[in-house]
Amino acid sequence: MTPILDVQQLSKKYGDFEAVKEVSFTVEEGEVFGLLGPNGAGKTTVISMLTGVLPPSAGTALIGGYDIRTQMNQAKQLNGLVPQDLALYPTLSARANLNFFGQIYGLRGKALREQVEDVLRIVSLTERADQPIETFSGGMKRRINIAAGLVHQPQILFLDEPTVGVDPQSRNHIFESVQRLNRERDMSVIYTSHYMEEVELLCDRAAIIDEGHIIALDTIENLIGLLGGGVIYLGLPRVDAGLLAQIAALPAVREALPAEAAPLGEGEAVAQRETGAKVKVVAEQSQQALVNVIGWLNTQDIPLTSLKILEPNLESVFLHLTGKTLRE
């Protein structure tokens, strides 16, 4: 099957700084694809190139078969962009905003009116349609922001950090809207976020992006599977090959590797770290492996100077792959 989006070696340079480095991925029709990475990783730049906001420095992408370098106008008709900013006109009503964003995609008359009503229903704001955006709550503005990207019925929707600064209730509403669009209209969605739980919840596949590179790309299950049953960082007075082999041989342990240092978790201060050797234990099942490792260390009379457990999720995968948290 031909993918709706085929990104090929896409790069963006600003002078000597390479913001996006040869990024490649595909998105199938009806797929929800996540771009996960910390702020400044290059997610928005990738989306900007794919939506025609920025020209690529190298590489290209095919959107519905249209090359963004040579057929951007045709590709734009298939795209819907929901920018990270609340890209709305505050003094105009929700309906006036949606009318305008429909008009710039060529919608007129009855078709425009019907589409505007439709997207207002999707984001559940029909009753507030004639009120100025500036009177809306942050969450309601976010929902209209999404509606503005949907009004021309795009085949592929680019959602750039759509839940930033949104209350939990509106966030859930946004999740439901995305799932409904995907389920009922078979719309493909590119969803960027630095919230791993959102990507885990919504996406079929995800690319983890850091410093302009894609460092991992797979289904959510497979990405989480990179960590096996979790990772345990042990602080020990000394580490040698024999010790590592003995730990690796314990039940529920997949492998034991020397580690420079355990990555810092969110809110963990550098001063909390202890000095000494570190061991990274990749577990089949983290709790069972922890019991086995601590029991064995006791029998060997080896004191444990520090301990950190990474549960198997995308946050841990990112930490595991980059040594940084997604919020850094």
Binding site: T51, K76, D85, I104
Partner: peptide, 13 residues
Amino acid sequence: RLGSFRRLLAAPM
């Protein structure tokens, strides 16, 4: 500032 300029750039115009 609002970001709507990005939206306009992303539109087929």
